[in-house]
Design a protein around this nucleic acid. Structure first.
Lengths: 708, 708
DNA sequence: TTGTTGGCCTAGGGCCGACAA
DNA sequence: TTGTCGGCCCTAGGCCAACAA
């Protein structure tokens, strides 16, 4: 009993170091435990790797922050800011323990130039050796808190295997084995718990100290806690909060920080200096920073009206849905301010009508269902020319009757785990058996990392053709590795060393710089008519669009001509004015897709994918030789799409940037002496909340450096 | 018991509407109860009146926020921004209940022009009739919480008179009279308390509900609560927190908001549009917005090296000290960025050496000790010329042996109240009996308001001579009215209707616009040599300053010549290098001052103060015909200066702007349609925290309107 | 008159095994 | 295996009068 009181007292003291209600303005701790950070971020996280190339889209960023904004930013920024990742720092909110990453980017016009010229150098800085080493953390568990866990009445019921795996062993010979656990949270704060093994039947419990933790962290039923035993034996303790509505104040803070971000980008682009964005893995998505490879590969495709596609969409509970739709047009969202921007340049029509999804998507968000391996790459040069030169060739064939083709990579990524499943470290067997069976690891020992960007962009793997299906095999393997363990619907992440892959520099098929440069200087009529925007759809003369009425949401297409003979799919003939002609049985549709894509795979492989690329960021058609083995998985996936089953439907999707960049760290782009001398004094004033102080400098920089 | 539980439950529910620890970013409620706001703001508050004229000094504002800043602001703003007060809105912080006011200003160059031409029109908008009517609130009390009040062990002990005055009467015939009190706080939230009259001897207590209030408001021993029964009988409940160290986060937020303020000023000045500043009555002072009348009157004086002055300085516990010193020079603080600025243009030397006060003050901060009624006005035209034209006349005589002359307005303003003193409404007798006896109210029924700016600036009363002692009588009366009730060291504010005074437009003695225009275009040598700054002191040739060494803090003056014969004081002869020659007995000094000032009063009255002006903002010498009756008050004042006695030393000082402007509300200076259309949608996003949302618009405006 | 203290009651925090899903 | 419940203990919140300043 004395020990229990001591525990409580200790936690009470610890609590004093946490921010009080009065000064809980968002303050971030500078650095956190790497493995704990990843554990808290969850399996969906994918971060750009230091040294890799990305594309930042200020248009998307601004749209995410405000629906309406002035022309000033647009006039100062290109629609696509090509950058190199200078640094990636991991942080956690002091008040909420929410993890986020600070990504430092530096504009690098060379990336764009190289790309336009068709060559692409990607420098790989293998600074992540120790990161990779530390990333292996098998001893970890995550449990969603039950009502009992969070009630004031009792303690925390520890799943048996979790306790045995993560906690120091108890002396079971004693009648009531117990010990004191000390676990550090993301901020390094220590939390002490009494761990006891008692009851009939025996079970592991955390008693004293637990309720203090629950109170201080404001945990509620549905939140998850996460214990992790590091290689050093130290116990770490993290939180994954249940999806919750953001308060007005939080929204406001996020807005503020976003505007700072954008202001700093404006400055940084003109100064070619570093700017920072913050990456919040668990916030709602708005992909305004994407890997360069994903960007370039997606643009290697041609997006003609009538092409079917699919897209993964996250839901609040971190589960994922897959939606399919039809491209109905292309064109600038905002031809005045962002001419030539690829941001949401595709007008789409979704298959499920009840969804109130955006009717515009960006090329990299989607995967074309009807793309043919090799076709895109083979046709792309002429495509580019046709795009500019008004040829009558359609960019791409359209699958027969509009259903398009879907791939099955999704299904293999779903690792169904039921309650009571074993917790396994990396050394244990993988759940992704099918994938491994069919695609043994790269003989050169190239292990994909858990963070897709790292392995993909960092290693600079890029297919010659720019078609992502070339790299499919490797990706599938990578993903099966990534999400291999789940306990009670909470993923157990087994991280892999990465960075061992050799850099592969390959040529891109894009040779026409105008494709990216876009119609920035073009008022209309050349590329995508900029007078058509919003609900209007644009297309090339070869596939003229006939709109019934300006406000009609159901445009009518003439059927495209010249379907690609190599493609197993046939151009759509359906009159698209009929309401949702695709609303047919999912299984039937996907079976069709299976046939089409499996047939395509072989022809594609013949095109010379000499390497096993590790990434699939480029969104294009999916095809897989796993088709024969994943029938049941497909059914599962179809089931998941129709029923909400969070415990099973948690999916790992490393090929997306699913997060919004919501916070920014400071930078001082100008060498102004007065400003350089200021931070120290200001930091002193602000005291402990160092990051907040830094944010202020942004405002100051903004105001004094830029505004005045 | 059931009733008690109900009470607790109700408060628990109420608590849900208060911001949680997670979203306690400063959010302000849009409007609060006027009388409660004033009660919480305390007696030191003085707000500019709607329609009145003020001078905003961005230099002071910037210095308050950052010690070091770029040249951009300065190049965009004049040192003195003449403005009209468009609006004054009262607010309270949602998280802390701290009151603040939002002051909307619009630049008005006409004020400056008129002033330079010697004429001054001040429009009085008598929109405050209902305000004045509501401002009368006799039924109020304020109690500093004791250890018992804030302990979890018990409730709140209500002072008997307070309970009888503010709470609904109890049925004392019952054995244990009790009732439920419902009081609304600044945000309109209702708090319920059980009010019981029990114990032996009987006393009033708040039991059930009290601890919930203490917890939710995070009250600690030393904070004060404030009950107020409005005219409608509704009970109101406010908080005055004890002086506390601001957290880093708070400092950061304040910084942020200040920068927004300044940015909006830059924009507003160029656009001649409205900008907003926020006025925090209880924050530390930095007078960068002052009433125009105070500004102009103070500058009507001549500030020559060697002149003695006094200045009121606030201390943390809201008490006030009065400091005296000597003017040792004049000149720009920052001749490069703010040439001609009157901000802290006076270099001073304080009498008490241990004080680490700023060695520069602004003219309106001080009151000259040796000014002679009429002398300033009579001499000022030549002064202006001499200032520009290098005459050899000293601006002003200096009192004999450097002690100077102080007035007794201070003393009459102190209304000593001991514990247990009666609570009296306005209708009751004043404590300022002396003042009333000697200075009956203006026969025209002009009652000074509790907010000095209102009566002073709003009524536009200005003396012909520009010497504030002319208006002394009225001021003294005003102030005695203002601070007439104190209970337990907490003031009970009895507000008066104001605005009943007729506008009096009078000519200023300033005819030379260059006096104000300053040496903005002058590089040096004409007015105040701008090459001399920082520690260097400037003076006119007639009163040359001999500094022992450049870094010496003890400059040596030649004694000024030509003391004004009308002045009872004689020019200082003391060698000012001797350390603190003024450090003598206060009473002796003040007795001297009494004699001097009383002698001066008559001569002054002969100069034709045909009106009874109501304000004393202009800081200049004080003189009073109260000299004979305020001997004891003087002693009290002297006592207060030497001993820290917060319960008694609380002083009303309406003639200062003692607060910093720390927060700003939004404005949309640009007529841009896009911006005008934005607020509604953004407000919707932010939801309840409307003011926060507005703040965001500032940032956006800043970024998009100005920066980009 | 009112701040502080001890007495006393009780709601709820917190540890336990029982029981059942 | 583990979520929930009732039993039980005990702390601390909270109401009270006594006492003292």
């Amino acid at each position: 009993m004395c020990g229990m009181i001591d525990l409580n007292t200790v936690n009470e003291d610890d609590a004093d170091t946490t921010p009080s209600e009065f000064d809980s303005a968002p303050v971030k701790s500078p650095a956190v435990c790497l493995e704990l950070w990843h554990a808290c971020a969850g399996p969906l996280i994918s971060l750009p790797k230091k040294g890799s190339c990305v594309v930042y889209l200020p248009q998307g960023h601004l749209e995410y922050v405000v629906c309406d904004y002035g022309d000033d930013v647009a006039s100062r920024l290109p629609p696509h800011v090509f950058c190199r990742v200078v640094d990636v720092k991991l942080h956690a909110e002091a008040a909420t323990d929410e993890v986020f990453a600070q990504v430092s980017l530096i504009p690098d016009s060379q990336i764009e130039l190289n790309w336009k010229e068709g060559k692409s150098e990607v420098v790989v800085e293998d600074e992540d050796v120790e990161i990779a080493a530390k990333a292996m953390t098998p001893h970890m568990f995550c449990k969603t808190l039950t009502a009992s866990d969070t009630s004031t009445h009792g303690g925390f019921s520890v799943p048996r295997r979790a306790a045995e795996d993560c906690f120091p062993p108890l002396d079971y010979k004693q009648q009531r084995p117990s010990q004191e656990l000390v676990a550090k949270d993301l901020h390094g704060l220590e939390w002490r718990f009494r761990h006891i093994y008692r009851g009939q039947p025996r079970r592991h419990l955390l008693t004293t100290g637990w309720s203090a933790f629950v109170n201080k962290k404001k945990l509620v039923c549905g939140d998850a806690v996460l214990f992790l035993r590091g290689g050093d034996g130290e116990l770490r303790l993290g939180i994954r909060r249940a999806a919750q509505v953001k308060s007005g104040a939080k929204v406001a803070v996020a807005y503020n920080e976003h505007m700072n971000d954008i202001a700093s980008v404006v400055n940084a682009v003109s100064m070619k200096s570093v700017f920072n964005l913050c990456y919040n893995p668990r916030s709602s998505s708005s992909d305004f920073v994407i890997p360069f490879s994903k960007f370039s590969k997606s643009l290697a495709n041609s997006f003609s009206p009538g092409i079917r596609f699919k897209m993964r969409i996250e839901t609040e509970d971190a589960t994922e849905r897959r939606c399919t739709g039809l491209i109905v047009g292309t064109g600038d969202v905002d031809p005045l301010r962002w001419p030539g921007s690829k941001w949401r340049c595709l007008m789409v029509r979704w298959d499920d009508m009840e969804a109130t999804r955006h009717n515009r998507v960006s090329p990299w968000e989607i995967e074309l269902s009807s793309s043919v391996p090799g076709a895109s790459g083979l046709l792309s040069p002429s495509m580019k020319r046709s795009r500019i030169g008004f040829t009558t060739q359609p960019d791409f064939p359209i699958s027969r009757d509009g259903t398009g083709i879907s791939d099955f990579r999704e299904s293999s990524r779903f690792q169904k785990v039921l309650q009571g499943q074993e917790i396994l470290g990396f050394h244990a067997s993988f759940d992704g058996v099918d994938a491994r069976k069919n695609h043994p690891p790269d003989p050169r020992g190239c292990f994909p990392g858990s963070m897709n960007w790292d392995s993909a962009v960092g290693n600079g793997v890029r297919s010659v053709m720019g078609s992502s299906e070339i790299s499919y095999d490797g990706v599938n393997f990578s993903e099966s590795l990534r999400l291999n363990k789940v306990l009670q619907g909470q993923e157990i992440l087994s991280k892999r060393p990465y960075g061992g892959c050799p850099t592969v520099n390959q040529m891109l098929e894009h040779n026409d710089p105008r494709f990216i440069e876009g119609a920035r200087a073009v008022s209309g009529g050349t590329e995508w008519p900029s007078v058509m925007q919003g609900y209007s759809t644009c297309m090339r003369p070869s596939a003229p669009l006939v709109r019934k009425s300006p406000m009609s949401s159901v445009p009518v297409f003439q059927q495209p001509s010249n379907p690609d003979p190599k493609c197993g799919a046939v151009a759509s003939r359906g009159n698209l004015t009929s309401s949702s002609p695709y609303g047919r049985n999912r299984f039937e549709m996907e079976s069709q897709q299976n046939l089409a894509s499996s047939g395509l795979l072989n022809s594609h492989k013949q095109l010379g994918s000499f390497n096993l690329p590790l990434e699939t960021q480029a969104s294009n058609m999916g095809s897989s030789n796993l088709v024969s083995s994943c029938k049941s998985s497909c059914r599962l996936f179809g089931f998941l799409l129709t029923e909400e089953s969070p415990a099973i439907s948690k999916e790992s999707n490393p090929s997306r940037i699913q997060s919004a960049y919501v916070h920014k760290a400071p930078h001082h782009p100008r060498g102004d002496e007065q400003f350089n001398s200021k931070p120290s004094s200001m930091t002193k004033i602000v005291g402990g909340s160092c990051t907040k102080a830094k944010d202020l400098y942004n405002v100051r920089d903004m105001l004094l450096d830029i505004a005045m």
